[in-house]
Amino acid sequence: MPSKRSAESAPDNRPTEPPAKKRKGFSVGPANLPDGTYRRKTQKIKTDLIQKAKVKKAYAKIKAEESVSAPRKSVYEKDEEREDGQSDQETSTEIHPERMAMLNEPAPEPEPEARLEQRRPREREDRKKERRPKRSAFTKEIEIAEQRRMAAEKREREREAKQKEREAMARAKRPDQFGKRRLGRESSALLSRVQRMVGQ
């Protein structure tokens, strides 16, 4: 026969409070960081957050105490204050006689030096607005390349001119149908050659 359970081991049918859960603290960053810069930084962030939370809590507590201790104003008192404030504003819109006299006086014209000083900052601002084109890092190289290109073009033109002169001279030296030299053509070819040489 099985043994009976004792009264102590018998389950309680009375409602019991659930065991209080342990509150976990919050974590910042991964938990398995090695000791070093990143771990110290996360710890610093955590302490800062805790400090701010404590300050907020203390502030809320002080504010609550002040609101409780401060005497409450009735609705009628608030209405009276509003009416007083409006009447003060209505009376304060009047301008003082001395101020009125100052406003009515014509403004003195600034001296020429002061005018120049006023213009100078504007001129400086205008200069700042006008951006100068940024100088290229390769301007010297670009200039050299341009000079080389122009020299090559000049040589090419001279070569073509010499070739034309040679062809013209060869044509001029051919005898005509009667076997005589064409002196007119030869002279024009020689003249163009001399002009080119003098032009250089």
Rank of each mutant, 00 (worst) to 15 (best):
R185I: 01
L190W: 01
A53M: 15
A53D: 12
R182M: 00
D12T: 15
R119Q: 06
R196Y: 03
A20D: 05
K4S: 06
K154R: 15
E158R: 06
A172D: 00
A152T: 06
M197K: 04
E160T: 04
R157M: 07
A151F: 06
E153F: 08
Y38R: 12
R148A: 07
M1A: 13
E156A: 03
G36K: 01
E123A: 09
A70V: 02
A137F: 04
L33Q: 04
R99E: 00
R135E: 13
S74N: 03
I142F: 03
K164H: 02
V75G: 04
E167D: 13
V194R: 05
E156C: 07
K73E: 15
A152W: 09
E160A: 11
G29Q: 06
K56T: 06
F26L: 02
T91S: 09
G29T: 09
E66D: 10
R181A: 00
K128H: 10
K128V: 06
N13F: 11
A53L: 13
A114R: 11
K54N: 15
A20S: 09
Y38C: 05
E158V: 04
E17P: 06
I45C: 02
R5H: 07
P133W: 03
G85A: 15
P121T: 12
L33C: 07
F178L: 05
R99H: 02
P133A: 09
R135H: 08
F178G: 09
K140F: 08
P15D: 09
E80G: 14
K21V: 10
E146H: 11
K164D: 01
S67K: 10
A101D: 10
E65W: 05
E66I: 09
S192T: 13
A10C: 07
A107V: 04
P19R: 05
A145I: 05
Q89S: 10
K22S: 04
D79R: 15
L191T: 11
D84K: 15
G29I: 02
E153V: 06
I62P: 00
S67V: 00
R127C: 02
L103P: 01
I144T: 11
A31W: 07
K164E: 03
T93R: 01
L191A: 08
A145Q: 10
V68I: 15
P15K: 11
K128W: 03
A101L: 12
E83S: 11
P15M: 06
P175Y: 05
R39L: 08
T47F: 09
A137T: 04
D48C: 08
L191F: 08
A7F: 06
T16N: 06
K173S: 01
P121V: 12
M1N: 07
E90W: 04
R193V: 10
R185T: 01
A64M: 08
G179Q: 02
K73L: 15
P19W: 05
S87E: 14
R39I: 01
D88A: 04
E83N: 13
E81R: 13
D88Q: 01
T37R: 12
T93P: 00
E113R: 03
S187K: 14
